[in-house]
Design a protein around this nucleic acid. Structure first.
Lengths: 347, 347
DNA sequence: TTGAAAGCGCTAACAT
DNA sequence: ATGTTAGCGCTTTCAA
């Protein structure tokens, strides 16, 4: 009714040959128009488009993929829990992929281990993607698949080999360093770190940034606290920490963990930020509204996704020319009410 | 090295004909084995599997799709911001889809309007999915695409027509009602409601559940407060509300909004829950660790996704037989510290 | 239980 | 600027 694309319910879907017939051209010309290839007269183009519209024609991607060897789709290996960080990154990846004119295929690997990643890659490769995105993979273990399409690693060095790999950082090291320095600048003697699971690259990056900041100031490096990104794990760490009054500053590797940590601290009678300062990591918008509003290191998810996909698509479409080098995203520390100078009598 | 699947870098990928040759059978027999069809001798099956393994054979999904007309993939129209609710639902959908042996294709529609949904459907249909999932769509406007594959609507009635539609609820109405009743049971004279954007079905459901609870108790129905799911919008609503001391209880349609709301209330000097009680909606785990811990209505995302995909796959694979009816997921209200009886002197 | 032949709908290579 | 031919790698008949 609206687009003139009516056909009986049982009728077969129109094919490019039908469009060609109605438009009075060859199938190849239809193909040219649909793929925006040159050497088509405006007149022919117009007629093809009109015929396609009239018939309600829809291109068959499977046939195109089979004939051309390309799918115009990108696969994502997601390390997906529903945490803010991974979800946010995924949303931005989707957006960037769509803007680039590609479709998105997703395989999740909740555990993120080498076998999970290998399985996800196999699945994506079978489906026939032109490129693959791996975000924040795991450190340990060997991935026994070698994709023959370009692979983008976001926030990590290549975790396995592939025909071509491209990487884009999220500045985690610098962000962690900035977060730690912020605490040091406030006058804290040292800063404790609540880390994520050691198997993640993301965890390692943050630890190293934190260590670098401490070392640069000659501050003592206290033992690591361990979490698993969840608020519950932050809470557990907070309970363990609360009785130690020598602790005056904690940098948590994730906002959720920071929130759990603060909750435990306050339950134990320690004030934030008066007794202990806490910095989070990610930049979850909700952090502005918790008590106290959380100082956090904002990860440039959107910039990283956009830049990464740009690089990946370049590698897919022009494997021979070097892509313009990626510009490092800006480091952004959002200072709010959860950080303050240490208490006057650090006993 | 590991799987014996070595071939030179430049060599073409093996095809089913290669497997057939190595196994000493016909291509059709290879196809039978790969599709778990009957009428293959154990001996033939074994040889085919061994040959495939040896060659590092990987099935070409595009070719299969072209030949069979089916893709074994399911498309999701996501209304994706990075909020906990949508992200969590998506994770569970992915899991359920994979368990069912299907691949996942995703198109996001941040605005969620009819045109956005129509475009997303077009894209999915071109890619050739066997079924489509639409989660929590928008109320208004007409979607001018009529998919010829089954469509699953999660948390909403069918928003447009399709060959076959199947729906699965998230119990939003009952959850909203339970949240409101909880507040009423505590002794509050009435309950205010901070709603999401009116264009969402999800918003409407919650409003109706809230109204039903109020009506059942003969409570006065105060004017709606408006938010957009974000913590910032909850904060804005809280500022507007803080000066009205007649308000003693608010049911917020989302956890993030509830957190923003509470923050504004406290900034204005109103205590939660002593002066005002607040209930959230979704069941974000982090709610247990904010101050005060947030009472919230937990949405059964996992159950809804699992049940919905089960129904959808049934409709795809056995269009003739009716699927076993969906069982409504349990209503679960998590009571924490943000709700209490109203203050003694309701002025 | 197995195989031979004929497409699926499109694009690539080579005309014209 | 346009058309013709020959596949892409698989599944579907249908026959054996």
């Amino acid at each position: 009714m609206t687009s003139g694309a009516e056909r009986g319910a049982g009728a077969p879907a129109p094919r490019s040959a039908d469009v060609a017939r109605v438009a009075g051209v060859s199938r190849k010309t239809v193909s040219r128009v649909l793929n925006n290839e040159p050497y088509v007269s405006d007149e022919a183009r117009r007629r093809v488009l009109a015929a396609a519209e009239k018939l309600g024609y829809r291109l068959n991607h499977a046939a195109r993929a089979l004939a051309s060897g390309r799918t115009r789709s990108i696969g994502v290996v997601a390390l997906g829990t529903a945490g803010y960080g991974t979800a946010s990154l995924l949303v931005h990846i989707e957006h960037a992929v769509r803007d680039a004119g590609y479709a998105l295929r997703i395989v999740n690997t909740p555990d993120g281990g080498p076998d999970g990643i290998a399985g996800a890659l196999e699945s994506l490769l079978e489906q026939g993607v032109d490129g693959i995105v791996v975000s924040e993979p795991i450190v340990e273990g060997k991935v026994q698949v070698r994709p023959d399409v370009p692979v983008l690693f976001i926030g990590a060095p290549p975790a396995f080999t592939a025909t071509r790999t491209v990487t884009v950082g999220v500045g985690a090291h610098d962000l962690a360093r900035a977060a730690t320095e912020h605490l040091l600048d406030l006058g804290h003697a040292t800063v404790h770190h609540l880390a994520g699971p050691r198997r993640w690259y993301a965890t390692r990056d943050r630890i190293e940034g934190w260590q670098a900041a401490l070392a640069a100031r000659g501050a003592h490096e206290p033992p690591l606290l361990n979490g698993d990104w969840s608020a519950a794990s932050g809470y557990a760490a907070g309970r363990a920490l609360a009785s130690d009054t020598s602790v005056t500053a904690v940098f948590a590797a994730g906002d959720e963990m920071a929130i759990g940590l603060i909750h435990a601290l306050r339950e134990a009678g320690r004030r934030v930020p008066q007794d202990i300062s806490v910095v989070g990591f990610d930049g979850n918008p909700v952090c502005a509204y918790v008590s106290p509003p959380l100082t956090t290191a904002r990860q440039p998810f959107e910039a990283a996704a956009r830049e990464g996909i740009r690089l990946l698509v370049h590698t897919i479409e022009q494997p021979d020319t070097d892509p313009p080098p990626a510009s490092d995203p800006p480091v952004e520390l959002i200072v709010r009410g959860s950080t303050a100078p240490p208490p006057p009598l650090p006993r």
